[in-house]
Write a protein that binds this DNA or RNA. Structure first.
Lengths: 158, 158
DNA sequence: ATCCTCGATGTTATAATATAACATTTATTA
DNA sequence: TAATAAATGTTATATTATAACATCGAGGAT
């Protein structure tokens, strides 16, 4: 399934990278060569990618990269909302709307492994109400739903 | 903070263990000695506990236990809804209402590390609506909110 | 009761994920 | 241009989790 949803994937990558570049310029963040290379690798597919898969991809380009290189770039990219970690998969995905909001929700198809963002303000509102009842101040909301996407549940019916 | 919320913690453990025992009997599940011991260790506090901390606790009792012992018990306990994994912490907590519903939501205080369940049906309903819109069939909903609990944000004000 | 089977446990080894600590380089700014 | 702060390089190791195969033991079939 990997890139089928994104007709013009190359464009979709470069648009996002440009956007990130712009945001970094505005905020005075250093979007260095390594950070950019790693963000590009993450965007090569719309699937979540694992840190060590990023590492082996980047080692093809520049031999002898080591884990801290990847984890540091991931830290930077996550801190600034350009990438999200899917905790249930120990994997990382690019954020398709950097800077719009801090909390992103994910639906993860356990058949094709496709991950889609499903950021929805009604979910956020409902959660915030419950947090208020609990007098809990939130920093971050992580929502990951595991199941089958439409395509895969259709296939499994046949 | 650890057990302060639960006035009679010993009772609270034994009640839950009894409940699990009963559920297993009804369902023909084998609540073996090891599984019980590990569930008891998990319930020693209301905090999430890490697999290797369980391992070292159980090694005090019975030397020479090894990781698979713990992970197998955790698998059993999670499959049957007696324990939940907090993915963002790689940690495990006992479920305070085994068998009532499959999806449990957590609020995690980053100061005192206390984790509370905040299973709320309005959240579930709202999420399900969004999943329907996306024609996505869910198996499991994981919601983890990180922030500060009431007690800790009070303290930090002072 | 005995054998059989299957699930549970024991055991060894290793895979997969992530970070600590310190050295060096590069960018920024005073 | 020197000072300084941030980023990267490097080595080592910590943490989390599973594979693979051997053995044990409970409960059912005969």
């Amino acid at each position: 399934m990997s890139n089928t949803r994104c007709d013009k994937h190359k464009k979709c990558i470069s648009t996002t990278i440009d956007q990130v570049e712009k945001i970094c310029a505005e905020k005075g963040l250093r979007f260095t060569k390594i950070r950019k290379a790693i963000l590009e690798i993450i965007w090569e597919s719309h699937q979540p990618i694992k840190a060590y898969d990023i590492l082996s991809r980047i080692s093809n380009i520049n031999y002898s990269e080591k884990p801290p290189t990847v984890y540091r770039a991931l830290d930077f990219l996550m801190e600034n909302g350009f990438v999200h970690k899917i905790n249930s998969l120990n994997s990382y995905v690019g954020c398709s709307h950097p800077n719009e909001h801090s909390d992103c929700y994910f639906i993860i198809c356990s058949i094709c492994n496709e991950v889609q963002e499903c950021c929805d303000s009604t979910i956020t509102k409902t959660i915030k109400k419950v947090l208020n009842k609990n007098t809990f101040k939130h920093n971050h909301i992580a929502l990951e739903v595991n199941g089958q996407c439409n395509d895969c549940s259709d296939v499994s019916k046949k």
